[in-house]
Design a protein around this nucleic acid. Structure first.
Lengths: 216, 216
DNA sequence: AAAGATATGTTGTAACTACAACATTTTGGT
DNA sequence: ACCAAAATGTTGTAGTTACAACATATCTTT
């Protein structure tokens, strides 16, 4: 396992490189590879371990009875998923986790952390984990903010303004394709396309492939 | 401060009663009282401390430009709020916290936890905090699940089914009034009343004040 | 018990979206 | 460069909601 890459991840901030191998062992680390479209975790499952995306990217998705998808998160390299369920061991997953492309996942039994002796390294891990959970919280709150408005137009602007702050530019890279963006905003794909076209005709945005320019 | 009450709270599980006074001191605990309608925290503020509801109850609310309210949580006795923002110190609040009635709040500087020596008590506090953050995450995910459907009817059923599981009965106590339930589900109050009436006429639910019977 | 205040229920209308069906553009493999 | 497949865009229609304006019920205070 390439520790050089792993030590850059949020969970391992302020962990000594020399400790890393030991930490991975303590957390019963193992990796697994997935192809595009593979299910990594299923709704209803219990997740004994959380996942870290070593390469590729995955979607955390909820499906309703009719198969309509609601994208909660898209997790890229270095990102974590299922940490909530790995921690709350009796809570069944309310989402699927699916590989968007060929991906390699590192699994860690995060509950083991609380059985380990209390030293500086393990305290750092706890602090990092708390930090990550707090940020997941914010992401979920932002998603709620984005899907609260009734109209597609308002949802799009809510999302684009958020992206504009995060990317610190008005030339926004959108990592979703249209269907995924529709799923994230909980609207119909063709209706989203229609609204984006209208916004472009009105001169409020400019569409170019995976970028959207915000024009103010 | 009545430590007998405080030790029953989620944050203080498995903490020795004899340690409690010391812990409260370390976390710079102080209490403050609020009247109905008082703002406890404002959108845009930074929260240096998180809050625990000692008595009364509070709402965590987001407002849009037109003053429309979106209720994220309702926090009752023993519940916590702003733990995410208290932990992410540079993140401004995206919600208001408002007292629904006369309430007493205990404030704790949770960040101080990471500066303290690593002993069993502080490790328990970290574990409890992680647990609470993970559960907040689940609550937010459930809220997303409830407001994802397009129709009021589907949102109501999503919420009622969730309550049915949580309360383990079909005779559901609803702690929201109609306006609050509408705000939580992000729909219009009168439209919600209308839909609830229709559901009752169809024999699918039975309304009685602050209870709703699910009829299956 | 009465009166004012607050909460809840009812109705009509304009606006927006989901859905379906189809047209066009872009992408990836050879 | 070509083709097939996938992604994106366009249009019309039926159904649901927000909003406004009002009616009724419930709570509070005296």
């Amino acid at each position: 396992m390439k520790t050089s890459m792993i030590e850059s991840f949020a969970l391992f901030q302020h962990i000594q490189e020399t400790e890393l191998e030991h930490v991975l062992q303590n957390l019963q680390a193992y990796t697994k590879s997935y192809e595009k479209g593979d299910f990594i975790l299923y709704t209803g499952d219990y997740a004994p371990s959380m996942g870290i995306v070593l390469s590729g990217n995955v979607s955390v998705v909820q499906r309703d009875v009719w198969g309509k998808e609601n994208i909660f998160h898209q997790i890229h390299e270095g990102g974590m998923f299922a940490e909530t369920y790995a921690y709350l061991e009796h809570e069944p997953l309310m989402v699927d986790v699916i590989a968007n492309c060929k991906s390699e996942i590192l699994f860690l039994n995060i509950r083991a952390l609380w059985e380990l002796p209390m030293n500086k390294t393990n305290a750092s891990l706890m602090k990092n984990l708390t930090h990550i959970l707090a940020q997941k919280n914010l992401h979920l709150s932002r998603k709620i903010e984005h899907i609260t408005p009734r109209t597609i137009r308002e949802r799009v602007f809510s999302y684009l303004q958020d992206q504009s702050i995060k990317q610190n530019t008005t030339h926004l890279h959108i990592s979703f394709d249209r269907q995924q963006l529709a799923d994230y905003l909980c609207v119909e794909r063709s209706a989203l396309s229609h609204e984006l076209s209208k916004l472009q005709k009105e001169g409020k945005i400019k569409l170019e492939k995976h970028f959207i320019d915000l024009i103010i």
